[in-house]
Amino acid sequence: MIQAYKYSILYFLLFSLLLLLSSALLFDAKIGLSIESILHYYQGDAKHFVAAKSFGGILKIILPHIFAFGLFMMVILHFVVFTKYKQQLHYLTLASFTLALLELFSPFFIIQGFEFFAYIKLVSLFTLEILLLYILYLLQKSIYL
């Protein structure tokens, strides 16, 4: 039975990798990976006939993500409890939830004209992805021990 759980978690890690990859590709396809493209996406771009995003429009996009981020991070972080890396769990939890919060809510500040939050959006997304990859690495390492 323990072996079955190990397999399930290993496959879950593979799915997580695909999820992170698809989110990065989706970000690139929909928004773009530069500060300019992020600003154009949220604040609108008259040259390319792109309308500015509204408060309600952003909320509609982030609503399912708030739940999904919370659930996904809870699942992978709770696996860390069963590994020898559990002393890092406090910092990993704090960092991942803070980064997710910044990533999700920075668009609200961008549409208010705070362009600096475009940097926060981009940096928090990629830092969160790297952090999640690190957690997945720790879990994968623990499965084989």
Binding site: S8, Y11, F15, L19, S22, L25, L26, A68
Partner: peptide
Amino acid sequence: GALLEYLHTQIFFMMMLLLTLS
């Protein structure tokens, strides 16, 4: 963009459903 959105959603549902089921 629409295909990546579809794949992204499918991955999330599949991983949660299959982890619980298995």
